[in-house]
Nucleic acid binder design. Sequence first.
DNA 1: AACATAGTCAACCGCTGCTCA
DNA 2: GTGAGCAGCGGTTGACTATGT
Length: 337
Amino acid sequence: MGRSPCCAKEGMNRGAWTAIEDKILTDYIKIHGEGKWRHLPKRAGLKRCGKSCRLRWLNYLRPDIKRGNITHDEEDLIIRLHNLLGNRWSLIAGRLPGRTDNEIKNYWNTNIGKKLQNNGNSKTKSSPTSSGSPPSRARQDKDMDPDPDLEQKVLQKTAGSCLVRTKATRCTKVIVSREIQPLKAVPSVTIHDEDEKVRRDHDEKIMEAPLPRFMDSEGNNLNNNDDDEENNNTNNELDFMADFEMDEGFFSDLLNMDISEPASCFENKVVVEEEDNTNGNVTTSEGGVRQQLASPVVSNDDTHLNNNNTNVSEDSLHEAEDFKSMSALMENEFDWL
DNA sequence: AACATAGTCAACCGCTGCTCA
DNA sequence: GTGAGCAGCGGTTGACTATGT
């Protein structure tokens, strides 16, 4: 397409994939799994470069790809995530199950971004249709303009934007305790932008941190991962939200949540510590990132996060401080998720 | 009907960062 | 410490399609 091929080899197919190529690739990956993209074409008998195979699989052939239009809720989430993450399409896609980074990127560029641009122009121009340019197409009206208030939504959600730059991780598994109980208010801490590098480090650390682990009232780890299952079969796992089914209903509920008090999202016995799977012991993670997210053992125990308790240990105070950082993040950004 | 224009989206490119020897 | 190999990411392109004139 106008550029020199990335894998400049004679006889390589380029451009649109054929059904046969799709089938070969799909069959190969079903048998051998993903990865080793460079060697895949040769082994599968495809005249494509590895990159192309990877892209085709990830963006089109993967079985969990979600087809169809972006829903209102997904759009809303995209806007929020973009506000938070910027053009980190893979990150955004990681939080929209079934959607690919390419799809979201295209959607943003052709819909949301454009509308934002138009909104900017509309402040200085009159109606665009009056300028002689053709009106929007019918398909566009049907498919890409599901929310007439989108511009306003975008503007509202991008107000006070604070980008977090991170690496992409899928975030679809969270376990929540059965008994959500109130937590003491955590003082807010503002993240300042004086030093971009420091802020980036901070942001990356937070985003790279593991998802919180949740405990039930007996203190059992409720995280639903394979290791836990293997090592704790007697643990009565909660199916409740074991897997986030991020369908429209989920998004509706999520986005309609009252998140005016973000700290409340960490209410209850939220224990974010790493469990030693070999012996079942819980060990606190080392390193700033994890600690910021994970260190504090937030429980109903008054020894934690009780700033009025003069007997609070130094460690507890430190933990509380760490948790404040998370709280600050949540206060600033929790509305996106 | 034919042409022009604009929108969509799959695919490509080049760069970055990670891993490993 | 460093360089090669590789995977992944974001920006960009262009073929295709829908719509307006």
